[in-house]
Structures are given as structure tokens and as C-alpha cells.
Design a protein around this nucleic acid. Structure first.
Lengths: 210, 210
DNA sequence: CTTTTTATGTATCGATCAATAAAAAATAAC
DNA sequence: GTTATTTTTTATTGATCGATACATAAAAAG
């Protein structure tokens, strides 16, 4: 059954996609409500009735981003066949996604609100948690790999995960600086080569391929 | 001979240091002139007479930053004894500098204006050039190492330099997220271990220590 | 001294910020 | 048709943005 009053004449997800594009290109602080209402085709009162505030709008945009926008980078990590495959996927998919023609360069979660002071503290905290979760996802996969025997038991999974997430976050800066897909992919490939070299267990007594 | 009119009653470098702190903590866009005048102890007309505009002030702050603030990271690269020593210095000095108690976390040049649209285009371009120069400094040192025999002649110095600068830029994000000195140093150490493993010339016919 | 020059303090400029008040319009319930 | 409910449009709100006009104060030059 339809609701009582006058129906909305805009689709919620459609206008959220427009808002995502603005936030992605300009960041949270510098995306003005005038920018957002113009891109979304809404008057301010309609926007505030639907999303509550600029912060509420950004929260819903973030959900959309994680559902459709920047996805495909971190989701497959937990179910990847190996730690190496997870690393390869994260780095290469980031290289592809961050240089996609139809999207703003880099990652919204890394670039939208990098200032610890000044920006909305709640927004900063949400984005920070997302970035921290990236590290945890990698660490948990590495710990499983250490238990499976893919990685040496004494591997510092936390350090490895932090290092790789740091590299991946840096790729957003590189993309925002205008790097093309080939440059980003060369960073990913170098990172992967470094992983292979690092993981080849030099301290182990003898490398056993079985 | 002293100048003709009424002398200034503030020291230029002293107030620039105050401005540096504000820009470093808040970024270019979110540091308001009210923040800056309050921190610098100046009235707006004095500030504008001395520095011309917010952009002009930031340019001078950047010069000060490169002279005294965030220095010690990139300067020694060109004169380092080896490429490995340059890499070790950049990563470890970044870990130390980005977690220094007396300074805001992370690097001003990476964090001050990450938005390509919305922020002042001139400021964005200046910061982008600084980041690009970081890559060039590393690349040139690596090319020299390849000529010296430290690195294999076929080494892709551009890819290596971009990869390392990307990691270092990511460390600013990590620091801004609240990582402590030990965490940053573990990223630096992991990156250095990856370098050592990567550079040990696996494709070469036979490792010759001479 | 008077004149010239530069810096300072007070008060504020128009523009833009995020967010709303109020009334008109469009639907369902009755 | 009438009422109740919700959305839309129009026109603003007070606050803050970066940047200045204006008058006064403090120095050197004559």
C-alpha cells in the first residue's frame, strides 16, 4: 500500500548516486549543499526531509559506496583461495578501480575527509573505522594462511596487513595526483613482487613446495 | 638602514610557524582566516599586508615547512651512501617524523589539500608537484644505484620509486588515523624487508656479492 | 616641528555556508 | 467532495567565509 501523502518524485538511490559523485570528487567538507542539490535535482527541504542533514546524506552515500561504488576490492579477501591471491586482488583491483574512467580517481574512504580537526568528527571517525577494517580483513586472512601453512607460523600478520593497507591507501593519493592505470598497476605489481619475495620464507630451514 | 614607516611588531618566521601548525592540523581549506589570525596574533589587515592572501600565506608556510618543518625525510636521499640506505632512511625517518609528539601527525604535503576539485587549484598543483618530486628524487637515486651496480641494470627504477613513494604517502594516512610510532616503524621495517627481498636479484644468473 | 610612509586596530564588506519557515501542490482516507 | 498527510517550491535564516575601508599610531626624512 502506498503512503498517505504526496508521493516523492525522485528515486532515492538515483539521487544518492549523484551525491556520491559529488562527495567523491570534492570530499565531504568541500561538497556544498548547493553542489549537492544541483547535482541531485532536489530543493534543500526535500533533501533534508529525506536524509536529515549533510552528515546523514553522507552516511547513506557511504553505504551505497560500499554496496556498489568502490566495492570489489576488499570483499573477496576473506574468501580468497590464498593470502597471495588476496594481496594480488586487492592491489590489482585497486589499480583498476582507482583509474576507472567513469569514476573519480582514488578511494572515497581515503580521500573524503583526511583532516582530523576541522571536518565533522563523526564523519572522520566513520572513515577511519573503514580504513582500520581494511587492515583487519587482511590480517585475519593472513592469520588463516599462517594456520594453513601458506605463511610461516612466526609471520607478523598485523605488520604485514598494516603495510599492505598503507600501500593501498597511498595508491589513492597517487590516483588523485593523476596517475594513469598503467602507473597504478605497476605499483600493484611491484607490491606483489615484493610480497612474493618477502614471503618466500628465507629464515625457514628448507623451502618445501609440498 | 631601517625602512621608512612604522616597523612591524611581529617576527615573520614566528607567525609563519604558528600558521604552519594551523595548516598542518586543519588542512588548507578548513584553516579559516579567523583560525590563522588568532593563532598568529595578527589582525587581518596586518596578515594581508604581509602575505597577500591565504594562498600566499600557505606558499610561504610551505617554504618554511620544507626548510625546517617536515624536512629530514627526502633531503638526504640524493647524497645517501646507497639506494638501500636511502630507502631505509625515508621509511624510518617518516615513521619517526609522522609520530613526533610536538607535531601534527602525518605530512603536510600529503594531507593539506587532497581534493582535486573544490580546493584552490594552485595549492593542489603545488602540493602535487612536491609529491611528484618525491618520486623523482628516489628514481634518480635508484638509477645511480643501477649504474653503480648496487641494483641490477634492468631494474625498473621508475616503478620502484613510485611504489616506495606510494607507501610513504600512505604512511601519512596511517599516522593521521592515530597510529603510534611503533606501528609506523613496523610498516617502515616491513617495507624495508620487502625491499631487501625484492632487490636480491632473483632473476640474475648467479648472485655475486662482489 | 611638518611631511611622508608603513603598520595597526576597528568595523565590516558581499558571498557563501548548512539548514528552515511557510505556503502551495499532490496524493490517500473518509 | 472533504479532510488529513506528505512533498514540493519559494524565499530566507543566522553564521561564517576570505578579504578590505577607514582612521589612527609609529617610525624616518626634510
Amino acid at each position: 500500500m502506498p503512503p498517505r501523502g504526496r508521493p516523492r518524485n525522485f528515486d532515492r538511490e538515483t539521487v544518492l548516486r549523484k551525491a556520491l559523485d559529488v562527495f567523491w570528487r570534492k570530499g565531504f567538507e568541500h561538497a556544498s549543499m548547493a553542489d549537492l542539490t544541483a547535482a541531485m535535482g532536489l530543493n534543500p527541504p526535500s533533501l533534508y526531509a529525506a536524509f536529515g542533514s549533510k552528515e546523514g546524506l553522507f552516511r547513506e552515500v557511504l553505504e551505497l559506496y560500499r554496496r556498489h561504488g568502490g566495492s570489489g576490492i576488499w570483499e573477496p579477501v576473506a574468501d580468497s583461495a590464498s593470502a597471495r591471491e588476496a594481496v594480488a586482488h586487492v592491489l590489482r583491483q585497486s589499480a583498476r578501480a582507482f583509474s576507472h574512467e567513469d569514476r573519480p580517481p582514488g578511494c572515497l574512504i581515503v580521500l573524503a575527509a583526511p583532516q582530523s580537526e576541522g571536518a565533522s568528527p563523526a564523519i572522520c571517525e566513520i572513515l577511519r573505522e573503514h580504513r582500520t577494517r581494511n587492515i583487519s580483513v587482511l590480517r585475519e586472512r593472513f592469520e588463516r594462511a599462517a594456520a594453513d601453512g601458506e605463511l610461516a607460523p612466526e609471520t607478523d600478520c598485523q605488520a604485514l596487513a598494516t603495510y599492505l593497507a598503507t600501500l593501498q591507501h597511498g595508491m589513492s593519493i597517487l590516483a588523485r595526483d593523476g596517475a594513469d592505470g598503467a602507473t597504478l598497476m605497476s605499483v600493484a605489481d611491484t607490491g606483489l613482487a615484493a610480497w612474493d619475495a618477502l614471503i618466500s620464507r628465507p629464515p625457514a630451514p628448507a623451502p618445501d613446495p609440498h
